[in-house]
Amino acid sequence: MRTITYLRATDTAGAVEAVSSDPTSDYLAGGTTEVDLLRQEVLNPRRLVDINDLPLNGIEGTPEGGLRIGALARMSEVAAHPVVRERFPVLAQALESGASPQLRNMASMGGNLLQRVRCSYFRDAESPCNKREPGTGCSALAGFSRGHAVLGTSEHCIATHPSDLAVALVALDAHVRTLGPRGERAYPADEFFLLPGDSPHREHPMEHGELITGIEVPATDPARRSLYLKVRDRASYEFALVSVAAALSVVDGSVADVRLALGGVATTPWRARRAEDFLVGAAADADAFGMAARVEMADAQPTPMNAFKVELARRTIVRALRTLTGGREADPGTGSPT
């Protein structure tokens, strides 16, 4: 790790001013990704501005049935919160399926959304990587790509977005609130995560120094009947091969409302709008779920190493929806879909 200077911020506006005015300053919150990448010299700021003392750690339900979460609330605190567990099971499950208990005690909600990709070519600080050094090329395209994305890819980057939390937030139409040098902003979660296109180094629309201050989750009718199903190489403490955040309302045997998002298969937390559009009004049965999954994955562009993800994603979507309709017992995080 290169040397750094350290500033512990005492107020939010001061922190934003400090980082905005200095291109060589970065924020430090939980540090669970950042310290690792500093040590690898993938990130090389001159100065870290520690924001852990800022008053941004509240978790509260809104009277309308939604949720407000401060950016510095820890993953473990949010997952354990009674309002989160009651109103948004998919959110609590997504949080608890990520990382380990130690890391969830450390990692902040805002930091989770800004965590960097697990692509080994990005993280080794040596290989050509358009995300780390724009214009150098993508080593994963012809390299080891078993964990990489099949949706939302470009010829410049196929790295998978690693967050479980973000998948649930995208499904729930959450907003990301920020404070920057030009004031406050709120981004729909679905627009906060940028496709790589020809600029994979740009992962979100924030400018330098803009700070995530909170996350807002609106009341959603189907959210109380929701789940997060994560399929991975081992039962715990592993990133998703495929994950599904799903919420469902069924009226008289038909799908009245559905929210569906995918993790582990795309370059962003992937809102499955094609599948949703197919499902609304359709019969809530396995045939319709299978068709919807097929529609969503139709444009997948796998590599020879990750082609299995396309079928795995279809099956995981079906299993998540069948679980919500009582057709199959949930076993999130451990089993393989059948």
Partner: peptide
């Protein structure tokens, strides 16, 4: 519980 390797002592 937390991981000491990913925590900067000064924090």
């Amino acid at each position: 519980r937390a991981l000491a390797c990913l925590t900067l002592a000064v924090t």
